[in-house]
Amino acid sequence: MSAVMKHRLFWPLVVLLALILLNTVSRPSFVRITVHDGRLYGSLIDILRNSAPLMLVALGMTLVIATRGIDLSVGAIMAVSGAVALTIIQDSGDPANPAVLAVAIGTAVGAGLVCGLWNGFLISVLGIQPIIATLVLMLAGRGIALLITGGFITTINSDPYKFMAQGYVLGLPFAFYVSLVAIAIVALIERRTALGMLTEAVGINPEASRLAGVRARGIIWGAYAASGLLAGFAGILYSSNIMAADANAAGLYIELDAILAVVLGGTSLAGGTFSIAGTVVGAFTIQTLKSTITFLGVPPAVTPVFMAAVVVVVVLVQSRRFRRFMGRLPARLRTWTSRTPDGAEAAS
């Protein structure tokens, strides 16, 4: 039992399951899955579907955080990617043509990759702090997206494009498959090559890694590039969901959700050992939390209050000082209670 409890995924899973249980108790329909035209419907399916953009961004964020960094620009990159894709589709005049879609998606994801490479350059080559370097793009990115869309919210009508976020394959949402593929590829690259181990080494002890001959610059650069690329894909999914490129709203605050998902999954913000599975659980937890909040009748706009609470709790649990403070609490209580005769016996 204790071996199970010590597993790093134990607490993230407990949180997720508790949340699902809470929902199930308060509304049994939560776990109900119905079948229409061979497609599955239900709250859980919605969570699988809606969590896709967050999942992609959080995967990238995991890699970045593992190098002791942070990427604040993912939301802006999503906006850029969505704007690029939809503008290309709109300008083509043939929104259903698969070739057009391929070009649009390719270019959009490429734009995301370029953004990521830019961040990586600033951080790994110029040595600028990650927060600030990605802040630049966070600021300018939405401006660029607005420029691409000409200041409007670009909307399109393209069934194949719509399919990506809203379509079904084998009864499950297509977006979920995108998540799965992304998880699989990231996990494969990190764990089947040496990248994961070397990334952790760089994140935990950059100097020792340098002395061991690890090429830290390339690894850090690569992490930001991956984050940009994944944010590019997330931007496509987001725009496909609403069939519009909204430069201001696309991916707003997603960087925060992603950071939270990573931290909930048990990866420390101080860098180092990371867990892809943990991030996956974390992303599902965030999405479930959002759906719970909505169900509670709270307007979605108020969600941030709950997020703030979660951030504070998670960050405090990770804070060594807070744990020390809490760790000393029982002892303090004991000395306090031991002043009474009953307490003294209980303590011994």
Partner: peptide, 18 residues
């Protein structure tokens, strides 16, 4: 020298892998 949180295995293979 060492990457404290990584395992003995990972620490031994680190330089070779790099």
């Amino acid at each position: 020298g060492l990457i404290g949180e990584l395992s003995v295995l990972e620490n031994i293979t680190l330089a070779l892998q790099a």
